[in-house]
Every structure is written in structure tokens, then in C-alpha cells.
Design a binder for these strands. Structure first.
Lengths: 346, 346
DNA sequence: TTGGGGACCGAAAACGTTTTCAGGAACGTA
DNA sequence: TACGTTCCTGAAAACGTTTTCGGTCCCCAA
């Protein structure tokens, strides 16, 4: 059953087929075969035809290693992430992966697990593999140490590099906060509170800043009189909401710093019998689908456009490979997702 | 500011350093340099020392492409997944990635997005890159078409191949169902119901089979008189729970086919004022941390040990690269995670 | 017949390694 | 002095491509 003989007769150990074999079968030289397959003009149409036919007859596939060796281009890029399990790396990674399109470029995935020495290790391996470029995806949206001068272009995604020489692509958290509150205001809310995560995260502070900013434009006060910083968890969402309702029962909208927190908020609002969105509107952040779409009611939220960030990173890198790379920090605008947890006041 | 000159003087375009440079600096031939760096025995200790020093002085890193060309081994494997965003691929991918350890082997990540032609496309690219092996991760735990005979070993993870010639590694859903119900029984539950997802998924049927199996061993009936198949969503968890309570109010435990469904179950139980776990115990499936650990109360659940599956896949592949691969389907045992949603009846 | 020119083809070098194998140096022995 | 041995070293081939450049062939005009 498990005999390795194939369907049509015995072939010897099946040496992998090379350009030489194709050339031989087509009755031309290796050089001509190469040119024929690569669409070089200086080969007669009939000859090209012969070669192409021979190639597909042998189902020839060129050895990319050899090609890379001579063209000095491996057709690969490295994707160095710090937390693969994190929900942020994945969309970025997907965006990048499909922007490269697999025709020309494949991506090496490396997860440093937030460990510095593992990162250097991976870096060595990638350079040794002669990647044409590198995308570095951080675990949280605060600055991370630069990798310094490398022989290939590098793009920092999500976490910016701490060196202004590098090119970083990040999401616009200030803009996101602004957008969330703007949405609430447009729906007639006036008593808006903000519950969010760990204040040591730049993202938390930026989102809050954007929110306050928008409130300021309307001369509205922040309901609850403070930004409720805490943890990025449902439990904190629940706890903070209870405190908030005690301090200010007139609140008519809550902007949560993450969808996770928003779930906690919703939970307590239900428990207290406050209708969402009739009595209180809720908006989250991240558009983490499993949480936002399944909430009761489905949660309006801010999407950071991470796949787009990944695609953009890939494009920038691609352009940089035979050109030169810019520097500085580029931000990606977020996107409002409206679901049922926000609506005009009756 | 963005001038490309480095800190110590102008170097010309910085040709990447090759073994030839090392040899030259050390005053030996390329052959000797190679042998020195690779720990071959036939080189004098002092010579080796010289070479090593030269290498690190130039921070030489060998060109893996060239090495691969001659050794006929690229030191890479392909990871072909069908749904990257899915929560199942990621842990597997992580397990595999860290089992390979980056020293020797790097992994090419390819996401076929469930599209067949994209899969063939990626496959061509990977073979052309001369990967030493392939891990194929499916999107759902049902059989998928085999890739057929390839010049490199292939392992199917999560979704088994439909050909018995191939080696597949899958989770033990029957065992998981058995384990969940066993846990409930040990905690004194007798009126156990099962709410799960789409019946077209083998996983749903297998988990149910395992559950019924364990109930049968105790001669216990299934509370609610049926397995509640539906969708893999919170909404279905809520709907099914309402129906279940109407049909059989005596139920004292619910086994949910996924953590998502379990969240819906919990939601309705709260709403109905039924204490968890005092009155009804709830156990989920998947150990999807964000859902299970943040639930109120935190959710006991079955973990499918996917990282271990990934690690195992990597190990098997590694062994197969210079040996021969087995065939058939190998299952990974699941693991019970106890949290507060299950406890002995008072 | 000779020469010029275009179109096409192939020999060979190159990419950066590893590995084989011949040979040189040092040394002891006859 | 001549000869084996034992150690170490380096020239060269090989891996599978791409690319350069000289050469052949053919056709046409002079």
C-alpha cells in the first residue's frame, strides 16, 4: 500500500528536473532555454515554443535558490512579530502576505515572543537567508527600539521605531478617539463618559486625548469627570461602569477603549436595566469581530484598519527594495463601524 | 538628516561580506575557511582560531542560498494554511514555529484563504523555493483533499487529508466530548444537556458522540432529549438555552460545543436568575482565552492542545526529512481546563 | 564573389558555498 | 640520504541558474 512506486511505471529516485534537462529535451543550450522561459526577445518563436513545451512536459520549476544567488535577490521578506497570538499581528500579517502576492515574494514568519535575544537570533537567520526586506510588528502601539542600520530596508508596523531615521506605520489613535466621540455627538448624546485600559499604553492616552479633543470642540464636559483608566479586560469594564453610574447617573453614552471593555460595560448596563442604545449608547474600539459582532446588541466600534496597514507596509517595502526608503512616522486613518449599540436618542 | 553615511567614515556601497573576504583576512584559502567555520576536524586549532576571529571581525554571515544550493537542503519549510484569521491556525502555527527553533529552519507562511487556485499557486512557489517539507493546516476539522505525491514530505494538521497514504495530525473531538461530560458527572451533575454548533461539522458530531458515550456509561439520559445543533455563535447559545429551559427546567449542567456558544448560555442563565455554577454548571470547548477567561464566572472548558499539535507536526516533519514518513491519522488528546463555571453541587 | 548586417544561438563566467582529492611540510626511521 | 607517515592546506569541481559576448548562418547588395 505504501509502496513508493508511482502510477506509471518505475522511475529511478526522481532527481529533480533542472534547466539542463529541459534544454536537452528541447535540443537547445541551457542559455537558450533560460532566455526562452524568461521571455527574452532574442530567441526565435518556434524555439521558444519547443522549450516551453519541454518545460511543462517535465513540469520544470526553476530553483529559486540558484536564481537568487545570481540575481542577488531572494524574493523573500521577513516578518518579525513580537506576539503572534496577539490580535494585532494577525491582520497586519494577512494584509502584508496578500499584498506580496506570492508570485514574486514569499514571507518568512518569525515570532520573537517578546524576547530580545530571540529577536536578534531571528534577525541573524533572516539576514543569512538574504531576505530582501523586513517588516517588524510590535506587540503594543508604543515605540520600540530600532534595529539600527541593516543591509536591507526595514519597516516598523504598529509599534513605531524609537529612531526617527526609520520608517514606521502606525494607527491613528487620536483620530480614532475623536471619531468615536464625534459619532456619539452626532447622535445627540451629551453626557459622554470614557472607560479605557492601562494608562501606561500610549494608545489609551491617545484615544482619550482624541475624545477630549472632540468634546472640547462642542464645549461638552466629560461625564463622570474623569477618564477611567484601568485594565484591558471585561472585568474592568464592569467595575468602572458601576462606579461611573454611581458617580453620574445621567450619563447617556460610553466610549470604551476596547471592545473587551465594552462587553463589560454592556453587561452591567443590562444588569441595571438601562436600555442600550435607548438610554445609553456604547461604542467600542478595535472591531474585534468575535466580541463586537456577537455582543447584545451588536457593538459599534472603531476599526484600526490593520489589514490595510499591513498591505501598505508591504507596498512601501516593495518600493524600497529598489529605491530608497522614507523615514518618520506615517499614520493610517481608522474607520467607524456602526452597529446597533449606538443610535439617535429618541 | 537622512544622509546614508554611517558613523565611522564612508564605506563604499558595502558589498556584503563573503567567505572569500574572511579567508583573505585570515590568510587562508576559501576551502580552509569553510572547514574552520563548520567545525571540520582536519584544520589546525590555531588556524581555526584565526578564521573565526576574522569572521566575527567582518561579522560574516554565510549565504544560506548558496549553502542550500550545494547541500540540496534549503532549511525552510512551508506552512500552508487555509484561514489565517481563524483561531485554530494560529496556535498550531506558533507551536510549529517554535519547534523548528529558527536556528536551522525557517518557515514560509502562506495563506490560501480557502481558495483552491491560490493554494496551488502557493504550492508551486513553495516547491520552487525548494522547501524541505510542508505543513498543511485546514480551516475546519473535516477531511480535505490530499495534495497528492510531492517531492517533499507533507503533514496535514487539524484537517486530515482524505487520502490514507498521507500523515495527518488531528485533535480528538470524541475524547473531548467524553472528557467534558465526565467532568460534569464527577461533580455530581445528572441532568446534562448539550448545545453545539453546525451539525455538518464533523467536530460537532464527534463531540456530541463523546458526550453521549460518557452518559451511556452511567445510564444517564441526555437532558432536553436531544443534542441542540445550530450555529457556532453566541446568539445560538442564547436561543438554544431558552428552548432548553422551557423543555426541561430540571437541567443542572450544560456542555457547550464551543466557548462562544457557552457565552450565550451563560448570558441567558443570568437573565433567568439561575446561579452558575450553584444551580447549573457550564462547560465550554476550545479554551479561547478571551472568551473563556473573561466570562462571568470564568468558564471551564476543553483545550484542544493545538500548540502541541503544531509542535508535534514540526517534529514529525523534521524526522521525515531524512527518513520516511508514516501515514494514517494520529490524534492529540485534549486537556480539561477547570475554572469556576463548574463545581460540585452543594 | 565578396562584404555587411541582422537574427539567433551557445560557451563560459559568475553568484557563494561545500567537498573531494592531490600534494606539501614536518618528522621520525632505515 | 631516502623514504613512509601523519597533518594540514588549497585547487578545483559542483550545485542550478542568468547574462555577456563572440560566433554562425543566412540574406541581400555591390
Amino acid at each position: 500500500m505504501s509502496a513508493p512506486s508511482s502510477s506509471d511505471g518505475d522511475q529511478p529516485p526522481t532527481r529533480t528536473v533542472t534547466l539542463r534537462d529541459v534544454a536537452q529535451l528541447a535540443g537547445v543550450s541551457i542559455a537558450t532555454a533560460s532566455k526562452a522561459l524568461n521571455g527574452q526577445p532574442q530567441v526565435r518563436a518556434t524555439t521558444r515554443e519547443k522549450v516551453v513545451r519541454a518545460a511543462e512536459q517535465l513540469s520544470f520549476s526553476p530553483n529559486t535558490l540558484a536564481q537568487g544567488l545570481i540575481t542577488q535577490r531572494s524574493g523573500t521578506v521577513g516578518l518579525l512579530t513580537s506576539d503572534l497570538e496577539g490580535r494585532f499581528s494577525i491582520p497586519i500579517l494577512m494584509g502584508a502576505e496578500d499584498a506580496f502576492g506570492s508570485d514574486q515574494t514569499s514571507v518568512f514568519l518569525c515570532d520573537a515572543r517578546g524576547d530580545n535575544v530571540r529577536e536578534r537570533h531571528h534577525l541573524r537567520a533572516l539576514l543569512s537567508r538574504r531576505v530582501d526586506g523586513l517588516i517588524v510588528v510590535g506587540a503594543r502601539p508604543d515605540a520600540r527600539p530600532s534595529l539600527g542600520d541593516l543591509p536591507v530596508p526595514v519597516i516598523y508596523a504598529y509599534s513605531p521605531s524609537d529612531s526617527p531615521q526609520d520608517l514606521s506605520l502606525v494607527t491613528d489613535n487620536v483620530g480614532g478617539g475623536h471619531m468615536a466621540v464625534d459619532h456619539l455627538i452626532r447622535h445627540g448624546r451629551r453626557r459622554i463618559a470614557h472607560i479605557t485600559g492601562d494608562a501606561t499604553y500610549g494608545a489609551a492616552r491617545d484615544r482619550a486625548a482624541g475624545a477630549l479633543n472632540r468634546l472640547g470642540e462642542e464645549d461638552l464636559p466629560l461625564a463622570g469627570d474623569q477618564v477611567w483608566y484601568g485594565a484591558w479586560s471585561e472585568a474592568w469594564g464592569r467595575g468602572a461602569t458601576r462606579m461611573l453610574l454611581r458617580r453620574d447617573p445621567t450619563v447617556d453614552a460610553i466610549f470604551a477603549g476596547s471592545d473587551e471593555i465594552a462587553r463589560g460595560v454592556l453587561d452591567v448596563l443590562h444588569q441595571e436595566g438601562l436600555d442600550v442604545p435607548g438610554r445609553v449608547a456604547v461604542i467600542g474600539f478595535d472591531n474585534w469581530n468575535i466580541l463586537a459582532a456577537n455582543a447584545r446588541p451588536p457593538l459599534s466600534t472603531i476599526d484600526m484598519n490593520l489589514e490595510q496597514l499591513g498591505r501598505l507596509a508591504a507596498q512601501r517595502l516593495f518600493a524600497a527594495i529598489d529605491g530608497t526608503l522614507g523615514s518618520g512616522i506615517e499614520t493610517i486613518p481608522p474607520r467607524l463601524i456602526t452597529r446597533e449599540s449606538t443610535a439617535p436618542l429618541d
